[in-house]
Amino acid sequence: MRLTLPLAASTGAQTDLLLLGLLAVSLAVLGLVFWLMLVYAIRYRHNSPVDRGALAEKSFRFEISWTVATLVIFFGLFIWGSTIYVRLYQPPANALKVYVVAKQWMWKIEHAGGQREINALHIPVDTPIELIMTSEDVIHDFFVPAFRVKRDVLPGQYETMWFRPDRIGTYHLFCSQFCGTAHSNMIGDVVVMSAQDYAGWLTTSGGGKTLAAQGKGLFIRYGCAGCHLGGGTVRAPSLVGLYGSPVPLSDGSTAIADDRYIRDSIMQPKSQVVASYEPIMPSFANVIGEDDLVRLVAYIHSLAAEKHG
């Protein structure tokens, strides 16, 4: 039985240090409290003849000191915990994107090359990985203890999470938000491979058409192309070069066209109307499933590269 959890992601090292720091503070305080309780219980037991002397009268000095000391230590812990969290919040731009669609009770993983897997995630070592996750039904949670990461996966929106695995091996994937009957079966493996093995895995795991290529077909089938493609049209903004760029909205604000923005624009087009366009696009909620949405988003993502060369 091992009592430490192996770490397999360079992004988790700071979390481990923080846990150690918290443990040290806790043990110090706990030691102090237990030690004083023990000493007082023996020294000041009712029939002990020890001289109690004069009682301390200026109690507020003690009160102020331990209140301030507690505040300072707690504030330090807050800063430490938040700094790591904030620093790791934004995924790096060069992260390898993998789409995750959760449903009762399985994880569906979609790679950009069109490879699909269930309850398993194959990724290359020493590469930042960004997961773009959504759920088809209830709230789930993607938890990889060895990477020190966890994020709820919500229906109706994209949540993202990233990490950089640095050790080859197979690790637990757990659903950690209770999601119904077979919650504890909603587990899987995260397989971290060398770059070479990963390349091999990609070629042997099918795929055929990339996600973007599949999305292109859907783009036509769902009728998106009618307004959004074909150059001359003025009814809807062109999507070429859209991904990752700022979009001026009709309410005067600006949004960054990331995965979440694109998804929301398909499902709730009236919530974010692009400036100088009429809000005429119908909602595709309950029309396009999460699997197809992932492909459409990947296709629109690929249009960015088309523009930049």
Partner: peptide
């Protein structure tokens, strides 16, 4: 006395969960 000991331990482990980065690891476990 039992209360003081256990409440202190419960409180101190609350500090772990209030620290954002630590909670990401420990939440829902």
């Amino acid at each position: 006395f039992g209360f003081i000991g256990l409440f202190t331990m419960g409180g101190l482990t609350g500090l772990f969960l209030a620290a954002l980065a630590a909670d990401v690891e420990l939440h829902d476990t």
